[in-house]
Nucleic acid binder design. Sequence first.
DNA 1: AGCCAGGAAGTCC
DNA 2: GGACTTCATGGC
Length: 261
Amino acid sequence: MSMTLCAADFSLAQIHASGQCFLWQPLGGGAYHIPAMGHTLTAEQHGDSLALSCTEAEWERVWRDYFDWDTDYAAIKARVPKRDTYLTAAVQYGAGLRILRQDLWEIIVSFLVSQNNNIPRIRKNLQALCESAGGVFPSAAFLAAQPESALRALGLGYRAAYLRAAGEYFSENAHLQALRNLPYKQAHERLCARKGIGPKVADCICLFGLHHLDAFPLDTHIKQILQTHYPSGFPYARYAHCAGVIQQYMFYYDLKEGAQA
DNA sequence: AGCCAGGAAGTCC
DNA sequence: GGACTTCATGGC
């Protein structure tokens, strides 16, 4: 390890388990191997002590941004009123969560794979995709060149056709860049025009791939939570520009009852 | 055997 | 606009 930081509102274990990144490899003992942005990092956390395998220059150039280090999560948590006992508990439970700033293309692929799927199998599918691409994350051009049958052979099911179509469209790098330049609503609308991308997956791409914190993905967990704990409506207005983070606290809090590691 | 998983598309009305 | 149904796959 080449550097050590003091980490507040930050937990590698919680981030890894929270269903936003699927290729971290747990090494045991609080350590993770993290491939991202064309780099790799080994990170190990004990309490608020975070040890990293990178140089300070690489931290500043790559990982500081990736971990969303400079967003004030304490300020977001402070928006939750104490009388909201459910969210108060959820925020305390997932106090170390972050919305990583991951690569847009990786997020598009990841959440195409995620639809009607579960987290352990999403990991397996994405690992199989990486292995088929020679050990790196498959590029858009690579997916565009795959016969659908080759992708189905990896266990991707009907999502194989969606991945191929996305590969063809996003091989044009300008299409990725255009998304980055749009505000949330317009990015969401443009994403929904792609085959295999509906409202929920588009929101995940906006939140995790474009860091639009207004995005509020409504998956089966969140829909159920809203029915149970907010039958008269969720106070979206209270969480303007951070609803996506609040959503992530709720999602992660809900996972603890599910049997997913 | 049936239901669920970070859903979307197609087909009705 | 909504409410079904179908689409692969694996785990429980």
